[in-house]
Design a protein around this nucleic acid. Structure first.
Length: 568
DNA sequence: CTTCCCAGCGCG
DNA sequence: AAAGCGCGCTGGGAAG
């Protein structure tokens, strides 16, 4: 059952659709629901286990969650439309061509929101008067229905390869599930103990200073720096001032980055590095951050699904995806609960093995420690070397140790290295590349296209540099994007299992955090074992959904802890 | 005064 | 050891 939920001046309108997006003939009339009764109506209809179709999950789901209504599944027209508009699997369809035309017409750099559907037929019935249809462009019931139908059409006509069609369908389902999970995790929040956070801050920085003032330990370091650098009014937070002061003291650095400062043995360097470290903590995750982002023992950031072209999530507010190790002790389970922190070990290299079907590297990937396996096969047991070489292949390193190790890696693993090299060459040539489940990289930028017109030798060099830069991006995209595909499936499958535990009446955990290849579940003590199993089984399900039954392991490392700093 | 970009650093 | 991918946030500082 498919239920389309659309905005309406009086609240919301609901319409039952067929799988293809046609009005369901047994109940063709849209149903109008007021704002006030929406949650109750949705809760009632959820018993029929529909797939909810809506413009954006963010428009509807947070309010429903606040009203205590959780849903099983949805179809996010905006997120799915963005995937279908760019996917190589649907590039030949009318949907993708329409989206391409839209971007050209509007001169948008952004991903199109979706294909503009044809105007609705005139006889829509009394419920939808003309003004109501156009209150928000592209979001009336009929426009959304037509948009959904067009997307289903594109999906049905995607790639002649049935496997690719199936993968794309899986990606749309996983992306929509991700949107729901993001809203649910924001609603739940990460368990965060303010008092523990304050204790950490006091240990590092001293007592809380008045707003706008430096804490005691920073002030002391500043005083020391001003003396050591003979600069009585120095503000070390200003890179320009700092650079001048360093030069006056014979410290010839080109930047004020910490690794470059470490080269110098001047006595001011040690307190300077200490200052930078603490200053960062104070500015980014200090008392002001705590006041702004943690309420009632929960940190509730907004996740932006589809915020990264590769399919990774971004976030907004509070720097949710950059919680520094220093303060992870403040992330603490409630009494009688545990945090389960699980991350996929060496996910991107393993994804590369599976993508390239490199059987030699697959042997190395059979072990828990892939880098050790690689080291044993081709790097004389030197794990650090093997790791640098492999990551360099995925990122496109050309210089340094990583660049020098590339030929050695290519000799041992021609298939794996060849796979990323091909992606790089495609990118350099202006082609797009595609993740395992069908998310494609953006087309070349205007800048890239213009650079191809170059004539002079100087312009040529510039153009080659831009092309190589794009090659590094597409090289990384196939791996990072496919890893994001895997993570989305892992997350969706884990959510499904946690929901099943709960509906069985068993104690169950809640997803509270997700970071690229890592999940955190907050659960009652009694549910720990079941949750750990769910996490591990979901990882295997994700692997098989992407790649079938292949001899490559995707192990997850699981830590059951009271607080986040105890994981890893 | 506001708005924007950069340098630097946090995370994967 | 410090280069190669993807992000967000901060304070400083220049531009409007």
């Amino acid at each position: 059952m498919y239920l389309l939920l659309a905005a309406h001046p009086d609240g919301a309108a609901l319409q039952e659709l067929t799988a293809a997006g046609e009005p369901n003939m047994t109940s063709p009339q849209p149903r109008l629901v007021s704002r006030g009764e929406l949650a109750a109506v949705v809760r009632q209809l959820e018993q029929r286990r529909p797939r909810w179709i809506w413009h954006r999950t963010q428009d509807w789901y947070p309010d429903l969650l606040r009203a205590g209504v959780e849903l099983e599944r949805c179809y996010d027209l905006t997120l799915c439309g963005a995937i279908l508009a760019h996917s190589a699997f649907t590039a030949h369809t009318a949907y993708a061509k329409g989206a391409e035309k839209l971007t050209q017409d509007d001169d948008l750099q952004q991903v199109p929101r979706g294909l503009q559907p044809p105007p609705p037929p005139a006889d829509q019935g009394a419920l939808f008067e003309a003004p109501a249809l156009h209150m928000e462009p592209g979001q009336s019931m009929e426009e959304l229905r037509a948009g959904y139908a067009a997307q289903q059409q594109a999906l049905a006509h995607a790639s002649a390869d049935a496997n690719q069609r199936q993968r794309l369908q899986l990606l749309l389902a996983a992306e929509s599930a991700g949107a729901m999970i993001a809203a649910e995790m924001q609603h739940t929040g990460v368990p965060w103990q303010e008092d523990l956070h304050e204790r950490i801050l006091a240990d590092y920085l001293g007592p809380r200073p008045p707003t706008g003032h430096r804490p005691a330990k920073l002030e002391a370091l500043n005083t020391e720096l001003r003396q050591l650098l003979s600069s009585p009014s120095l503000n070390p937070d200003s890179p320009q001032e700092l650079m001048r002061a360093l030069h006056r003291n014979g410290i010839e650095v080109k930047t004020t980055r910490q690794w470059e400062l470490k080269e110098s043995s001047h006595p001011a360097i040690e307190p300077l590095l200490a200052y930078k470290k603490l200053s960062r903590l104070h500015a980014a995750n200090g008392w002001a951050w705590l006041d702004a982002w943690v309420k009632n023992g929960r940190f509730q950031p907004e996740y932006v699904v589809g915020g990264v072209v590769s399919g990774r999530w971004a976030s907004r507010g509070g720097g949710a995806l950059q919680i520094p190790r220093q303060i992870r002790g403040a992330v603490h389970a409630d009494p009688g609960h545990k945090l389960i922190v699980a991350d996929a070990s060496q996910l991107e290299p393993r994804v590369l093995v599976a993508l390239a079907q490199d059987s030699k590297m697959a042997e190395a990937a059979r072990d828990k420690d892939l880098y050790a396996g690689i080291a044993a096969q081709g790097f004389g047991g030197d794990r650090a070397k093997a790791k640098v070489a492999l990551l360099g292949a995925i990122y496109g390193a050309t210089t340094g140790e990583s660049g020098r190790l590339m030929p050695q890696l290519a000799r041992t693993y021609p298939r794996a290295v060849g796979f990323v090299e091909q992606a790089a060459r495609d990118g350099e040539a202006g082609k797009t590349v595609t993740s395992r489940l069908g998310r494609s990289s953006p087309p070349p930028s205007q800048r890239w296209l213009q650079s191809q017109q170059s004539t002079t030798a100087e312009e040529q060099r510039r153009a080659e540099s831009i092309a190589r830069s794009r090659g590094r991006f597409t090289r990384n995209f196939v791996v990072q994007g496919s890893a994001a595909d895997w993570a989305a499936c892992w997350l969706a499958e884990l959510r499904r299992r946690l929901r099943a535990m709960r509906s069985d009446g068993a104690p169950a955990g809640e997803l509270v955090f997700f970071l690229h290849d890592e999940v955190m579940v907050h659960c009652p003590d009694a549910a720990v074992d079941a949750c750990v199993s769910a996490i591990e089984e979901a990882a295997n399900v994700a692997k098989e959904l992407l790649f079938g039954r292949i001899p490559v392991e995707f192990p997850v490392s699981v830590a059951v802890v009271e607080s986040y700093d105890k994981a890893k």
